Computed example of a mutant assay.
Amino acid sequence: MSTSEPPNWRHCAHGADPAADPVGCRGIHVPGHTVCFAHLANSDRDAYLAGLAPGASIDHRGTTFTESLLDALLNALRDPATGNPRLEGI
């Protein structure tokens, strides 16, 4: 997404630059943090993932995912009975 308009949610703003990109990262804050899932420190990301369970309500609007970040999130939401991730709130 390339726009100078910020999203209508509290967003990460990582990498914001007044001249090049005044909005920065548009990923929504992870609850209890001021950055998105992609920009959490490793220890904070690990703690967030450990607190998730299959069917957890999640919101990662605007967040850019790498393959490894998506895999980590889906693994935290994996239902042991089915082996499949169970998502809510998306």
Results as ranks from 00 to 15, higher is better:
D17P: 01
A41T: 04
Y48K: 02
N84M: 09
G83W: 02
R10W: 13
N42L: 07
A13D: 13
D21K: 01
A72T: 05
C12P: 10
V35F: 04
R78C: 06
N84R: 09
I28Q: 11
A72H: 01
L70W: 11
D79Q: 12
F65C: 04
R86H: 06
D59N: 13
H60S: 09
I58C: 15
G32F: 03
N42W: 02
P18W: 11
D59I: 08
I90E: 12
A19M: 08
A41W: 01
L52E: 10
G27D: 11
A19R: 08
P85N: 04
I58N: 11
F65K: 06
F65P: 00
R78P: 00
H39R: 06
F65E: 08
L77A: 07
A56K: 07
S2N: 12
R26D: 00
G89V: 14
G15I: 11
H60G: 05
R78Y: 00
D59Y: 06
H33Y: 08
T66W: 12
P54T: 02
A76V: 01
H39N: 03
R61I: 11
D17H: 06
L40D: 00
G15Q: 10
P18K: 15
S2D: 13
H33A: 00
D59W: 07
T82D: 09
A56I: 15
M1W: 12
G55L: 03
P6E: 02
A72D: 13
A56H: 10
P31G: 11
W9M: 13
V23P: 08
I28V: 15
C36T: 10
H29N: 05
R45F: 01
I58Q: 07
D79K: 11
P18A: 12
D44L: 07
A47L: 14
G24Q: 05
G27R: 05
A50I: 08
R10M: 13
V23K: 05
A56E: 15
G55M: 03
H29T: 02
Y48M: 05
G83F: 00
D44K: 04
P18E: 12
A53G: 00
T64R: 11
H14M: 08
A38I: 08
D44I: 03
L49D: 02
G89D: 13
D71F: 15
G62R: 05
D21H: 05
L77D: 04
A13F: 10
G51L: 07
P54E: 04
C36E: 10
T64Q: 09
G27I: 09
L87D: 06
N42C: 02
H60Q: 13
R78Q: 03
C12D: 01
T34L: 10
F37V: 02
L40N: 00
R10A: 15
R61G: 09
L73D: 04
H39W: 09
M1E: 08
P6Q: 01
A16V: 00
G89R: 05
L70F: 08
L77V: 13
D46H: 15
